[in-house]
Nucleic acid binder design. Structure first.
Lengths: 340, 340
DNA sequence: CGTAGAAATGGTAGCGCAATCATTTCAGGG
DNA sequence: CCCTGAAATGATTGCGCTACCATTTCTACG
């Protein structure tokens, strides 16, 4: 049943190490956690004992005794969207280097599940938490506020964070792209996304766009939202639908680059002139965006950077230092290319 | 400093809940962990007490007392490669549904770091572990074997797993693609990858290809390996380099689809005829692969599925059931399209 | 209505470690 | 060589929970 060939000898404890090295358990504990407070001689003996016994520290016991673990929970709405993965990767990079472990929670865009995840994670006595988004159940906000430890909300930049916040304004991103399209002369602009009810950040980009269209007195339309998750093929199909259903449309602002690149690849295959017949714009700044023909106009969001900064801010606070800012607005960058 | 507005009242413990509900702590523990063993009446009182006190279970203490947590460590070599992320997502899906938490370790393709990660994770008394790849330090293998709990090695299918293994044979995948290219009449085939020393799975695909070329008495060449991590732009550049440096080459087998799609996009932009001037093949089956023109011939690897199965096997074993098989060879699928 | 056996509940002990405070050892000055 | 303060080491205690076993309550049946 178990792969062990070796008889399941009781695993060595810190006490065993202490006896083997002829010191007190407390000294071993210190040698492990604050090596500089133990004399070289003892440290050497202890290290030898650890090797001899194959001792591995029991972090569970450590966390209980010291009422705090080095585990940082990270809660995201999805792992199938590269955007969140890149943020997790950024967090991981910084956190692991600082000696923290990441615990991963996936809410599938469900705020109830988010609450459950937060609640469960609190039971691991983490020193802080990172959570995507700023929309949570009241219960969730209260729980985290009452908890009182550092929390970073990521992805979007918004008002009244639970504690800290690192992200960008999706509303402004939508505005920026709309201004660009309007300046380029496009007048019939359609917004296309997937699951805009759940992906409220994409919806915010739509709202930003809508405001700009209104400001310029241009035709405003409902956003086109598909039920399936974003994927490139969907982007291509959406392009064809827009062309046939709304032939007057002269530009599409896609909720993300997966859709937009999919649309460009489809246009190419179908021989549709982009941007002449219809312009295409995206959001995120995927690597493929600059390589397709025509190259995609998009907005680069610094996902990895958001993750890194979030982790840095959190660790800063965990270590008792005051972070530079509570709220960080990482800026996005318009990348105007051939598709508009 | 802390976001708490509320005075940091001592958090409620299970004992507090017990007193509030007028039962013993043991009963509360049972109500939480095996609700069916507690009478409805008591369970209701206990739930009420939990709500009233805002109690959240301390998993650290639970794990210590029961000498086992519900945390499953997952160790991968990289998070910037979508392949591993998709596996993690598959694992997550199954594990979270079964009530397990994921702890994430990233080795950056460094076997020493892998050892450290394994060792650290063991300290969280996990019920099992999932680790990418089958190449580890001897120390790592010994540690895991001696540990004696379920371990799944993923990504590749190979001989002599530490315990269980779910993956595919990259060697065979390389062979399959080479056979296809040879059958199509290509004779001067180049393998292009990035960091093939670290990414030994890609190197295995090369070896599989090389064997087939040898078998057919065709020209064999060293694989072309770049130092930077895989990215689409590199694929495009590699294509141009091969065309100018090895003008006789009539096909390129890229280590992955990021490179291959990048090459196709570049070919299109430069007006290079694919597959006429040179054929292009990839590996992984990214969504974009079928959408570019010409559509990319590639091999679909069931990443998400690998993750799901790995998690299922692990949980099966954790629950004491014997899994169907110790070793699972998930098969890959040739997707022959326009680029070859 | 009594009794056996099952189901529900409780008391006790200890998981492995670090916080805390007590004690010992050391370095350096008089 | 003693004394003082700092550095190094040790003894004790408890973190919050669950395993284990003991006890009580319920159910079914003669």
């Amino acid at each position: 049943m178990s792969p062990a060939k070796v008889p399941a000898e009781r695993t060595a404890t810190l006490k065993d190490v202490a006896e083997h090295a002829g010191v007190s358990p407390m000294t071993v504990s210190r040698a492990l956690n604050k090596p500089e407070t133990v004399s070289d001689a003892l440290r050497a003996r202890i290290d030898a004992a650890i090797d001899a016994l194959g001792y591995v520290q029991n972090h569970v016991a450590g966390a209980l005794a010291s009422a705090g673990s080095n585990v940082i929970p990270v809660i995201v709405p999805s792992l199938s969207n590269t955007v969140f993965v890149e943020i997790v990767a950024g967090i991981q990079e910084v956190a692991q280097a600082a000696g923290y472990q990441l615990m991963l929670g996936n809410t599938e865009y469900d705020l109830e599940r988010e609450y459950t995840a937060v609640s469960t994670f609190l039971g691991w006595s983490p020193p802080g938490m990172i959570i995507a988004g700023m929309r949570h159940l009241d219960r969730t906000r209260h729980l985290l506020k009452r908890w009182g430890k550092p929390v970073v909300e990521t992805m979007e930049f918004g008002a009244q964070p639970i504690d800290m916040n690192v992200g960008l304004s999706h509303y402004k991103a939508g505005e920026a792209m709309a201004e660009h399209l309007v300046a380029r002369g496009y007048r019939q602009i359609v917004f296309v996304g997937c699951r805009l009810d759940a992906d409220y950040r994409a919806a915010q980009r739509y709202k930003g766009m809508d405001r700009v269209l209104a400001k310029h007195g241009l035709a405003r339309r409902e956003a086109l939202s598909y039920e399936e998750p974003s994927n490139p093929a969907r982007g291509g199909d959406a392009l064809m639908e827009v062309l046939s259903m709304k032939p007057k449309a002269d530009a599409i602002f896609f909720a993300n680059d997966d859709l937009a690149v999919g649309a460009i690849l489809r246009a190419q295959r179908e021989g549709i002139a982009v941007p002449k017949r219809i312009a295409i714009a995206g959001f995120n700044g995927l690597p493929f965006a600059s390589l397709v023909t025509p190259a995609l106009t998009t907005i680069m969001s610094p996902r990895h950077e958001i993750g890194r900064i979030a982790a840095q801010q959190l660790i800063e606070r965990i270590s008792g230092r005051t972070p530079t800012k509570r709220r960080v607005d990482v800026s996005f960058e318009m990348q105007v290319r051939e598709s508009t």
